[in-house]
Design a protein around this nucleic acid. Structure first.
Lengths: 212, 212
DNA sequence: GAAGATACGGAGGCACCCTCCGCTTAACAA
DNA sequence: TTGTTAAGCGGAGGGTGCCTCCGTATCTTC
């Protein structure tokens, strides 16, 4: 058997194009109709057969995933830009605010994402990693500058942020989330130079006295 | 036409019984199989016909709602009990912790709830009202005792709590949420001179691992 | 241009949704 | 108790969307 199998073929142009079309259509359809929207509707909007859709994205979740990955990238890039801001605490606060606003435009997708996160821990890992790094870089700067306590991880903060945004079916949710984030940042912030010093000088003993 | 129409009949015993059975079955089925679970499976498990299920709960959301309402009641009652605890801040912290644990046992239901909340603002209003009052009573005590800042509403706190719990697909989510809540309560807490001192003298030593 | 690999589309089988209506049963009156 | 009647029950069946499968079309490579 001849195997120049390692010879990899260039992916077909139509396949690439169709995949892109489906993603585009899916984003629109899910945003409008929620996660239950018909996949056949997605295929139709994309102008491809239902079979094509299923070949590229064997399950509904696969499709959610692919759509979602893009969104994550965008937030990640924003953090990159904010890293050069002057005030680290303000930069963090700003990123959080942007994240809230970002979520605000994705109403229809959110329920879909809730479902996807639940079943695909792989996606959760990816986005966690990506967004954690984003927050982490902002957080570290603030900590390094002595402006924030250091016992809350980027993971924790991310969790709080995403969590709060899930509540966005209430009227006024957005301003409420923003207020919460302010309180939160206050909770994280070093109180005064003196206090900060005292605290850092303090010896170990785990952050909290959690009973049970 | 004779109308002793105002004469109201007692609801039929079998109807009451069946309704109860369906709720029981639904809780189990949704917990295990998530929100997409077959309603026919629910009917079968309840030992009733599919028609009966649909008469009692015309839509899938109606069923979610009814199941959910009970859960809310329980949390509400817990708050009632905690109102008599000595330390108000600790009572609040405890209620929050219990809420987290409570959610932890409802894995399968959470995605369903996310969907329901999105489409039924009526349910959201009900549970918000109920839980807000629960938190509110605990929060008020702490504020009245001068142990907490007063500019964060029960609604805000509830939002943060529920939000955080939506993240529970991650390993270790629970301890993370608990940690977040601690930080949060710290952020809320009054920083009186005495308190602040106490805090500094206290262990809140952070740091630790937090690699990267 | 030919050969072969790759992708396309949509028919079709299946599962589930939900409605509709004839039958059953509980509540009330006598 | 028994009769009357409203309320409730069950599940057949039409409809929709899911997903697979395979004959056909198109692209890449030589």
């Amino acid at each position: 058997m001849d195997d120049h199998t390692d010879q990899i073929r260039k992916p077909r142009a139509d396949a690439v194009r169709n995949r892109e079309r489906v993603l585009e259509a899916a984003k629109a359809v899910f945003s409008a109709g929620g996660p239950e929207a018909s996949l056949e509707a997605v295929a139709k909007r994309a102008g491809v057969g239902i079979g094509t859709l299923y070949r590229h994205f064997p399950t509904r979740e696969d499709l959610f995933e692919a759509v979602y990955r893009r969104e994550v990238e965008q937030l990640s890039e924003l953090a990159e830009q904010l890293k050069t801001a002057k005030d680290p605490v303000d930069a963090l606060r700003r990123w959080l605010n942007s994240a809230v606003e970002f979520v605000a435009t994705k109403k229809g997708m959110s329920a879909a994402l809730a479902l996807t996160f639940q079943s695909s821990s792989e996606l959760a890992a990816f986005s966690m990693d990506r967004l954690t790094k984003a927050i982490g870089s902002l957080l570290d700067r603030a900590v390094a500058a002595g402006q924030m306590r250091a016992d809350v991880s980027p993971e924790d903060l991310l969790r709080a942020l995403i969590g709060m945004c899930y509540m966005h079916d209430q009227p006024g949710w957005q301003s409420s989330v923003l207020r919460m984030l302010d309180v939160f940042v206050d909770g994280l912030r070093m109180q005064t130079a003196a206090k900060a010093k005292a605290r850092v000088a303090k010896p170990a003993k785990p952050a909290v006295k959690r009973k049970r």
